[in-house]
Write a protein that binds this DNA or RNA. Structure first.
Length: 353
DNA sequence: GGTAGACCTGGACGC
DNA sequence: GCGTCCAGGTCTACC
């Protein structure tokens, strides 16, 4: 189990707290953080030369930036991973001094992002079913620190090209995010906006300044459903979605009933919740079906063939599908941990892949 | 249940 | 620099 025990591995640096976060034996920060496209979306930032993850977090006593490294890493952009780093602890530097509860909060949020609590038995089962990913150690998929952010990122990735998604997320943070208090230079200085903040934002602001287009009303509705009221309750309880005991079908049905969420988005949010049996089929799936799997026919026919191709992977279908596509991207653009957000983003358009 | 068209933005392209 | 076309998933109306 990962995590900094209270009082363990914690130091005060001149600018802020330093924590040590233990990780599972097979965890590699560069490989496992740069495993899903959201690692390129604000307020996440990956710095390839220093193999450092920067992230603005909204903590109990205000926003802070954390810098995360894995112990023993070498400087400079490297195409080949040093897998001997697997399992080495993470060094987390905060931009300010954190209280004890905030240290626990940082641990919890980073653990969700990096899937440090991923079920080891499930990972092993995935590798048995699809041995292609055992040796490279692929299995974890990066996600956001909160379910709400994952949902907003999914909605802003629908019906838009990837550079558009990058722009929407950057502007959501710039316009609605809470600012950090620090004179240091960071890639981002504002949090991802909370459900409370988006829920009380005007549609004209979302459309005009964040340029989310017709998604404005849908994002506000979603935010109001996840917004915690004064009595501490929300119309939608994130804990219910995150609870492993909640049946897959129940979650899927609720997701499909939410504004802005159709079959693709619902399946994608399911995988972000660690439920990998559904495939979020979209135009990328069709491209993959044609270019990599060699299928022919109309889009709908190719999509059906892609679904049938991954059906034997059962409850691990998404991971097999995703890493197959991800390796294809890496063949075109180099290893994901060498990608830069702004300059490499344009490559991730179906027509160019 | 299946299909068509509208919804927006940003990039590519032609002039 | 301007106008046009196109890509992208969801939603609604219609058959």
């Amino acid at each position: 189990m990962a995590g900094a025990r209270p009082g363990e591995g914690k130091r005060e640096n001149k600018g802020g707290s330093i924590l040590t976060l233990r990780v599972p034996n097979d965890f590699h920060l560069a490989r496992d953080y740069c495993s899903y496209g959201y690692f390129l979306l604000a307020p996440n930032h990956w710095d390839p030369p220093s193999s450092t993850l920067f992230r603005v977090l909204d903590l109990a006593q205000g926003p802070t930036v954390v810098r995360v490294n894995q112990a023993g890493l070498a400087q400079g952009v490297r195409r080949k991973l040093d897998l001997s780093l697997c399992g080495k602890p993470l060094r987390v530097r905060a931009s300010r001094t954190l209280s004890r509860p905030e240290q626990t909060q940082v641990k919890r949020l980073l653990s969700r992002m990096l899937r440090l609590d991923e079920d080891a038995a499930m990972l092993a089962a995935f590798h048995r079913l699809d041995p292609r990913w055992k040796r490279p150690g692929r299995g974890r998929l990066m996600r956001s620190p909160t379910l709400f952010e994952d949902i907003v990122k999914t909605v802003t990735s629908c019906n838009v090209t990837w550079p558009g998604t990058i722009g929407m997320n950057r502007r959501l943070c710039e316009v609605l995010g809470a600012p950090i208090r620090s004179n240091e230079r960071f890639p981002f200085r504002r949090t991802f906006p909370s459900a409370e903040k988006i829920g009380r934002t005007r549609a004209t602001t979302l459309r005009g300044r964040c340029r989310v287009g017709y998604r404005d009303g849908r994002l506000i509705e979603l935010a109001r459903l996840f917004r915690v009221s004064r009595n501490g309750e929300a119309a939608l309880d994130a804990g219910w979605f995150e609870n492993p005991g909640t049946p897959d079908d129940a979650i899927h049905d609720v997701l499909l009933s939410l504004p802005g969420i159709g079959p693709y988005a619902a399946a994608n949010i399911m995988q972000l919740l660690g439920r990998y049996d559904r495939l979020p089929l979209d135009s990328e799936s069709v491209r993959h079906g044609r270019d990599v799997l060699g299928y022919v026919g109309r889009d709908a026919q190719v999509m059906k063939k892609v679904a049938a191709h991954f059906e034997p992977f059962g409850e691990h279908a998404f991971r097999s599908y995703w890493f197959e596509m991800w390796v294809h991207y890496e063949k075109k653009a180099g290893p994901s941990w060498t990608w830069r957000r702004e300059t490499d983003a344009a490559q991730f358009i179906a027509s160019k892949l």
